[in-house]
């Protein structure tokens, strides 16, 4: 049976070898060490010193950390529902085999696929209070101009708006999820006299619910992380720290102030909170397949 091939010893495990080594170095080890650093005082120069829960106590007292957490909380509370609703709406509107639908699906995916730095630069200009097109557009319909980048409330809102268009991944997921619902179900419901709204309310929504929850869970982790580039490029955390979200705060703590222990503690706290929420609401059975 065996022809004495000299590659015969090569078991499937060898294929995994490079991945196991590199991902240990770049993902597993850094994550575990960061979790450990949260309990130390570490300034990147001298060796870390064990301080127990000290970092967490200092975080609780820090004004800027509280601001960062509140900013992130507001951002997530606004962006996640908007992004999920947007992805659902576009997925239901844009399913169909005809060519125009295909083109529009590409358009909806566009803001997700283009480089985040370019996207942020474009929005830096769109949100410009004086000659940005958004305010010119508001003016054209008789609405007052808004200080998008200089008013704390509107700066935060601006971040939410630009994130609301980057919904390609959720959109694709829901398009595919919608395809899993058989057309027969809708036909049966129509025969029983269900109108469009009822079909949506009693067929589409319940069947898509696990997917929506999956999406919300993922978005809690992803959308917060994705604030880094826009808040770095457009506002650098300002005005008055209104757009200092957790990733930017961690960056400043770790790389500007070399408070690596504190940064790690903040990170661990946020990871635990978002991770737990995600675990609580996600029904993983839909992805098991």
């Amino acid at each position: 049976m065996s022809h004495g091939n000299r590659w015969r010893w090569f078991s499937p495990w060898y294929f995994l070898f490079p991945f196991l080594v590199v991902s240990s170095l770049l993902i597993v080890w850094p994550t575990l060490v960061t979790a450990g650093l949260a309990f130390t005082d570490f300034n990147a120069v001298s060796a870390p010193v064990w301080v127990g829960l000290d970092n967490f106590l200092r975080l609780a007292q820090s004004e800027i950390v509280r601001t960062g957490l509140v900013n992130s909380g507001i951002f997530v509370a606004l962006a996640v529902p908007l992004r999920t609703a947007g992805a659902l709406g576009m997925a239901l509107l844009l399913r169909g085999r005809e060519r125009p639908f295909g083109v529009l699906r590409g358009v909806v995916y566009l803001p997700t696929v283009i480089p985040e730095a370019a996207y942020a630069l474009i929005w830096l200009w769109i949100l410009n209070p004086v000659y940005g097109p958004l305010n010119l557009l508001l003016g054209a319909v008789g609405l007052p101009a808004i200080n998008w980048l200089t008013d704390p409330v509107y700066a935060r809102l601006g971040m939410v708006i630009l994130a609301t268009f980057q919904i390609g991944e959720g959109f694709v997921l829901l398009l595919a999820a919608r395809e899993t619902i058989a057309q027969d179900v809708y036909e049966a419901a129509a025969i029983d006299g269900a109108d469009r709204w009822r079909a949506f309310r009693y067929i589409t929504m319940p069947l898509l619910l696990p997917w929506l929850l999956l999406l919300v869970g993922r978005d809690l982790l992803v959308s917060l992380q994705n604030t880094f580039a826009p808040s770095f490029i457009i506002t650098y955390g300002g005005p008055y720290y209104a757009t200092t979200f957790v990733p930017l705060l961690v960056y400043e703590m770790a790389f500007d102030f070399l408070e690596l222990g504190m940064a790690a503690a903040l990170l661990l706290f946020v990871l635990l909170v978002t991770g737990l929420i995600t675990l609580a609401i996600t029904d993983f059975s839909v992805v098991k397949e």
Binding site: L26, I27, W29, P30, T31, V33, T34, L37, R218, L221, V222, L224, Q225, F228, V246, P247, V250, Y251, A254, L260, A263, A264, L267, L271, T278
Partner: peptide
């Protein structure tokens, strides 16, 4: 799903 921020420092 581990956010990138989690490994910035040690990477």
């Amino acid at each position: 799903v581990i956010p990138g921020v989690a490994f910035w420092i040690i990477r």
